[in-house]
């Protein structure tokens, strides 16, 4: 596979946190290349740096050292505002705790990323409805999160992650709060997004069954890829 086909390119990444006088090196000299259209799972023990790595790739955090090129952009050099704009275009997030806005309906939650685009209101609503149809929730569009089951909430989360057609979907323990059946449904959706819509997906998980659904499993230990 040629270098240009890699959508995520990390070289010599180092991430250190400082707590009081203590310096904690979470990622050290990490290199990682992920090709476009991949569905990769990132596993490892707690504290191994999985979520930190995911946050760096998603532009939520900055490396202490190293080069970080995602979707053709060196995001370590972007300002806070530029990084926000970049995230809104290129990244779709799926969170472990769903993180839906409680006072908004399913459709309004899904519409949120589109508010950062110049799409007219009618088009935004149509796209949000389409995304909810893709995840099988077209009959729950006007429901608020507290009126949905955990599995349904996560499906709304998936719809929110895909509605603006991002380059990469990052999922942090997307099945961590779900029962087996709901987890399978979500993983099935991720597979579908990867295979049918050619989305690049990077998933952090503790669940071996979830990881097996990915096309590649990477293991992280003490801040380095095994």
């Amino acid at each position: 596979m040629s270098e240009t086909e890699h959508i995520i390119k990390l070289k010599g990444i180092n991430k250190t946190f400082t707590r009081g006088k203590e310096r904690l090196e979470v990622l050290s000299d990490l290199d990682l290349n992920i090709p476009k259209g991949a569905f990769e799972a990132l596993m490892g023990p707690s504290g191994s740096g999985k979520t930190t790595l995911l946050n760096l790739i998603a532009g939520l955090d900055r490396p202490t050292k190293g080069s970080l090129e995602v979707a053709g952009q060196d995001i370590s050099k972007l300002s806070d505002g530029q990084l926000s704009k970049w995230r809104s275009s290129h990244i779709g997030f799926i969170f472990q705790h769903f993180n839906l806005i409680p006072v908004l309906t399913a459709q309004e939650n899904v519409e949120l990323p589109l508010l950062l685009t110049k799409l007219p209101a009618a088009e935004r609503k149509t796209r949000a409805a389409t995304a909810l149809r893709v995840v099988g929730l077209e009959d729950r569009m006007d429901h608020r999160p507290n009126q949905l089951s955990g599995g349904q909430e996560q499906r709304v989360g998936v719809a929110r992650a895909i509605v603006h057609d991002p380059t990469i979907i990052v999922a942090d323990e997307p099945t961590g709060e779900l029962d087996r059946q709901s987890a399978d449904e979500i993983l099935g959706l991720l597979e579908k997004l990867n295979k049918e819509f050619d989305k690049t997906i990077l998933m952090v998980t503790h669940d071996p069954a979830a990881a097996e659904r990915a096309t590649l499993i990477r293991k992280l230990d003490k801040g380095q890829l095994a």
Partner: peptide, 15 residues
Amino acid sequence: RREVGVLRALGFTRT
């Protein structure tokens, strides 16, 4: 706080 964090993650700016 968490909602604000989500909005920031989705791309909403500090402004």
